[in-house]
Design a protein around this nucleic acid. Structure first.
Lengths: 229, 229
DNA sequence: TTTTGAAAAATTGCATGCAGAATTTACCTC
DNA sequence: GAGGTAAATTCTGCATGCAATTTTTCAAAA
C-alpha cells in the first residue's frame, strides 16, 4: 500500500543482505521463506525473488528444492576473497595513476593529508570512514565502472571481516604510511609502483586481520567469525 | 511435468541468457513477462525469478514497475568491459606465473605447442577452441576461484563481440606470437612480464575487434558502427 | 501538424493456493 | 539402543488472480 518507490523485492534484498553482513543471520543458517516473509511482513513471492538476487552475489547459497542458506565462508575462501580484492584494488590504483584527472589528484592529496591529522589525533572512527573514502577515490579514479563496481562489491562483502582492522596498536600510523606510498605513486603517475604499493598495503591489512584472528588461515569457518569480532 | 533436476527458473535463466548472448533477443528489446512465459511454456513466476537473476549479472536491465529490457551496451561500456577483462586476464597471468604447479606449467607449454601446429595448418575452428582452453588455463593457474570466475564471466559476456576475431588475415599467427610471450613469462615465473604481455595481447584483441566491428551478434548496432568508424 | 487529456489496455508487483519434493517423526524390527 | 522404513509434516516450485501502475490509444484543442 505504501507508495514506496522501490519494490518490496528490492527492499527485502537490501535488508536481508544487511542482516547477513552485520551477522544477524549467521552463516549456514537456513533462510526459510515463510519465516522471512513473516519477519518482513510480505508474502513469499518477493522473498523468493530477493533470494534469487542475493544468490548471484554469492552472499547466500541456493540449493534447488532444498532452500537457501547463508553462504558459509571457509577461511580458505576468505583468503581467496582477500587476494582477489587486493589484486583488484591494485589494478584500480594502477589505472588511477594512469588516468586520474588533475582535479582528482588534487582531491586525493588533500584527503590523504586530512587523514594524517586523524592519525595524529588517534581518531579511529574518523580514520575508518576516511579510509573507505580514500579507497573509493581509487575506484573512481580508475575511470572504469565495471572494475570499480567489482572491487567495491568485494570490499562490501569483506567488510564484516575487517571491522577490527584499526584496533591493533600502531595500525593507524602504519596504514597511513602505506597509503602514502600508494598516493605518491598515483600522483606521480607511476603505474607500476602504485600497483605494487597497493598490493603491499592490502596484504598487510590481511595480515593484521589474521593476527587479530589468533588462528592462521586453514581451519574451521568459526575462525572467520572470531576474526569479525 | 518433466522430472528435470534443475528448476524451471534455472533453465529459463540459462535459455534467456543464451538467447541474449547469441543475439536472438536484441539489446534494448523489452522482455515482456507474459511473452517469455508463453514462449517457454511456463507461468510468469519463474520468468520473473530468472529475470531478477539475470539482472544482477548485468545482462538485462530491470526497471522497477517498467519491466526488463536487454541491456544496451554502448561502445563506451563495451570498451570498459574489454579493459576490465584485460586487467583481470593480466592479473590471472601474473598469479599463474607465481603459483602454477609444475604439472600445470608442463600442460601449458604442451598446449601452446599444439596451437602452433594449428596455426601452421591455418585451422581456425581448432585454434578458436584451443584459444579458449588456453585462457582457461591461466584462470585455473591463478589458483583463485573468485578471480577466475569473475574473469571467465566477463569473457563469456564479451564472447558475442569476439566472434570474428580470427578472421582478420594474419591474426592467427599474431595471436600465437602474443601467446608465446605470455606463456614464456609464466613458465619462467616472471610475474611482471606475464602481466604486461597479457595486457598487450588483450588490447590487441580489442583492436582487432574494432577493425572488424561490422555487426557481431548481440551488439547494439550503433555501438558497433561507432567503433568501426 | 503537434499537443494535451482522459479512457482503455497492457503490464508489473504481489498474495494465495496447491502439487510434489524433502525432511522429520513415529514405529517397528533386530 | 541401533537401524531401517513408512507415514506425517514441512517446505519449495510454480500457477493463477487481482490491484496498482504504466503505457497506449484516440479524440479534441492549439
Amino acid at each position: 500500500m505504501l507508495d514506496d518507490r522501490q519494490t518490496r523485492t528490492e527492499k527485502l534484498a537490501g535488508e536481508i543482505a544487511d542482516a547477513i553482513l552485520e551477522g544477524t543471520l549467521e552463516p549456514g543458517s537456513r533462510l526459510d521463506e515463510h519465516m522471512l516473509a513473516g519477519r518482513y511482513g510480505t508474502s513469499r513471492t518477493p522473498v523468493r525473488e530477493a533470494l534469487r538476487q542475493l544468490a548471484t552475489t554469492g552472499l547466500i547459497e541456493l540449493r534447488p528444492r532444498r532452500g537457501a542458506i547463508v553462504a558459509k565462508v571457509t577461511s580458505e575462501q576468505l583468503e581467496m576473497l582477500f587476494i582477489a580484492m587486493g589484486e583488484l584494488e591494485a589494478t584500480c590504483a594502477r589505472l588511477s595513476a594512469m588516468s586520474m584527472t588533475p582535479i582528482e589528484r588534487r582531491r586525493l592529496g588533500a584527503h590523504y593529508d586530512q587523514m594524517g591529522e586523524m592519525v595524529a589525533q588517534d581518531d579511529v572512527p574518523a580514520y575508518t570512514a576516511a579510509n573507505t573514502a580514500l579507497h573509493a577515490m581509487f575506484y573512481a579514479g580508475a575511470h572504469n565502472p565495471v572494475l570499480s563496481e567489482m572491487t567495491a562489491g568485494l570490499r562490501r562483502r569483506l567488510a564484516p571481516f575487517r571491522r577490527a582492522q584499526f584496533r591493533a596498536p600502531g595500525r593507524l600510523a602504519r596504514s597511513h604510511a602505506e597509503h602514502g606510498a600508494v598516493v605518491r605513486a598515483v600522483l606521480a603517475g607511476d603505474a607500476a609502483s602504485a600497483h605494487a604499493a597497493m598490493l603491499h598495503h592490502v596484504s598487510l591489512v590481511e595480515d593484521a586481520f589474521e593476527q587479530l584472528a589468533g588462528a592462521p588461515a586453514g581451519t574451521a569457518p568459526e575462525a572467520a567469525r572470531m576474526k569479525a569480532g
